[in-house]
């Protein structure tokens, strides 16, 4: 049966990894490609790059990242961060990226999901959704890196993007992101129940039990992990061995 995926996430600014990455055994721990290759060796199932470059150079740096990664990394990788044009998606995929993730542009221009999934196939269009708890069963979708509320209910929105052709949801809990208190099980359950496409849970991983819980209790198909890997608290291999020992189907 299909395995659950462990996906390290790298934030990249102007071609460099941001947020402390504290590996001492890498030539250049700030090089996103070298880090991705390192995670591939450790057994990561995929890599997600989030490009946060905010300048006119952005298009160039993001395409360069796609291209350089393809030469050294032989597992699938997704690139996201401010992508809003069909031509940019085309270029990124052409360089060897497997998927692009779209967030703000998907809300502002939902036809982008429809068009891009028709042209390139649903499987390479990931819609990233940032959600914040409001009340009862209402989580609100935010855009612009979590600065702008949209009024949209997350469960309605994910169902809509599935209809439009998205192939996967990258779901981030804004309430949990950066807390290390664990993934938001309720939010993730609400989303995995609302769609029939794979869901990557993100935000809040602080230990390996958190990974297990969101997979077992919320049926996440994959978990996005950042700081606990980057700061060397756990290796990808340790995470996978733990999940396997907990009876989860994992590729070792």
């Amino acid at each position: 049966m299909i395995t659950k995926r462990i996906i390290p996430c790298l934030d990249v600014n102007k071609g460099r990894v941001v947020k402390g990455v504290s590996f001492i055994n890498l030539k250049d721990a700030g090089d996103p490609v070298e880090l991705a290759a390192y995670y591939d060796k450790q057994g990561a199932d995929e890599i997600v790059f989030l490009d946060i470059t905010a300048s006119h150079e952005k298009r160039k740096t993001i395409i360069e990242l796609a291209s350089k990664t393809a030469e050294k990394v032989f597992i699938p990788y997704t690139i996201g961060g401010g992508i809003s044009e069909i031509e940019d998606i085309r270029e990124i995929l052409k360089k060897g990226a497997d998927k692009v993730s779209i967030n703000t542009a998907a809300v502002e221009n939902p036809s982008l999901i429809e068009k891009s999934s028709k042209i390139f196939g649903s499987q390479c269009i990931v819609v990233a959704v940032d959600a914040k708890y409001r009340e009862n069963d209402f989580w609100e979708v935010y855009i612009h890196g979590g600065r702008t509320p949209t009024g949209k209910n997350v469960t309605d929105w994910v169902a809509e993007v599935e209809q439009l052709g998205a192939g996967e949801i990258l779901l981030t809990s804004m309430d949990r992101d950066g807390t290390k208190d664990g993934y938001d099980i309720e939010l993730t359950s609400a989303v995995t129940s609302a769609v029939n496409i794979p869901v990557i849970a993100s935000g809040g991983a602080g230990n390996l039990e958190h990974l297990r819980d969101v997979i077992k209790l919320a049926n996440a198909d994959a978990v996005l992990v950042a700081s606990i890997f980057h700061y060397g608290e756990y290796t990808v291999r340790q995470a996978k061995e733990f999940l396997k020992s907990e009876g989860i189907n994992i590729r070792i």
Binding site: I2, D45, E168, P198, D221
Partner: peptide, 13 residues
Amino acid sequence: PSVVKVPHMGWNQ
């Protein structure tokens, strides 16, 4: 068929 999640995405044996 949509009895399973579509796309079939990830590592499988």
